[in-house]
Design a protein around this nucleic acid. Sequence first.
DNA 1: CACGTTTTCGATCGTAGAGCGAAAACCTGG
DNA 2: CCAGGTTTTCGCTCTACGATCGAAAACGTG
Lengths: 222, 222
Amino acid sequence: MTHEVLCVVLQVRSGTLQALLWRRALEPHLGRWSLPGGRLRHDEDVETSIRRQLAEKVDLRKLKHVEQLAVFSTPDRVPGPRVVATAFLGLVPSDVEPTVPEDTSWHTVEQLPRTAFDHGSITLRARERLRSKLSYTNIGFALAPDLFTISALRDLYSAALGYRVSATNLQRVLTRRGALATTGETVPPGRSGGRPAALFTFAEHGMQVTDPFAAFRPPSTR
Amino acid sequence: MTHEVLCVVLQVRSGTLQALLWRRALEPHLGRWSLPGGRLRHDEDVETSIRRQLAEKVDLRKLKHVEQLAVFSTPDRVPGPRVVATAFLGLVPSDVEPTVPEDTSWHTVEQLPRTAFDHGSITLRARERLRSKLSYTNIGFALAPDLFTISALRDLYSAALGYRVSATNLQRVLTRRGALATTGETVPPGRSGGRPAALFTFAEHGMQVTDPFAAFRPPSTR
DNA sequence: CACGTTTTCGATCGTAGAGCGAAAACCTGG
DNA sequence: CCAGGTTTTCGCTCTACGATCGAAAACGTG
């Protein structure tokens, strides 16, 4: 029984949430699109394995966030000898354009092409995880450049969540959580005019993905 | 490379959160406490595997909730040939007393005994998962009997979370989420008197563990 | 300089959870 | 049968967070 690691690499590109997929060059499922990854080596754990494989095959050392998604282990999920897969969710900031091999390309998660094996449903599971965590963690930072305007961040959130997000609300929520840090700088407006936008960064302690916002809170120690 | 499935079976017993552990009868780590589970068969996925193994060795078909926790895959996590583990979180309602084999017993998670391998940290991870989910899902129902009073539920939440929870608040929150259903019945008070407590059940749609409470909400369609 | 555009800020509203205290409903002991 | 203790339950208020709206700020263009 072999063990493989797979990663759903997500990035917001041109306003939509997209996943990086490989075109299979082998049977079975030749020509279909599949998730990057590969076999787990005997000297590495799954985290380092997926990081190695991504860094090897693609230039994706800029992955800002990687986390375990789930294990997929249906006996017949791939034809032939049994393969158990540990799937990951990986996030790439919207400003980097990773150099990817010839046989890979980005696909909007909204309408995926024919995927190999169970890779389609794995991708959808990854999107659900991202959407859930966007609301109660600051995982959204992994989708954004180091410097960004609020409206740019709003567009990222909108693309990932699939519905329109208000910039006003986003700024206030993130500010209240102490996740935003102001740089004095601004960005000149576009051709159609408009007020110049302020540039923000993530606060230091806002960088790591914080725990879910507790609906039940420990007793206040006032 | 073999694959094993492990389960952190948690139950609130006598006011504390406890985990079901086995005393190892084999080297290595003979005599230490370990998580129930075993090797993944070639014809089953990890979910059915852990369910089978728990139902086989212990009488635990009453597990009200089982979910994947994480993969643990450090190459040397167990001595000898490589073993990758998929860990689960399992919850047992507080009113059932499962018949368990001779060589197993319950241990408070607060102060675990010497565990085998990485089973100690896995157990702690499971507790963290439970605590997180308690606040923003209704997973707490898996810890409670079918019929329960609010104060009994309060005690369960307090034990699992590790801090005192107010019965008033708990009732209101769960009611507002539509998770509680009233049965007309009450329970006579104890020896020291007191108002009889009302018996509650879980609403139908409250039975499944709902998604995290969204901090960002889709636009209201009013 | 009027107008459109985009960003940003302020004010208000609704709702969820926290905290407190009183009322309700039951015991036991005199 | 009543006084006091106990436990549950309900109501009121407070605070915090997110939603919504609108106006002001700061820029372009014709």
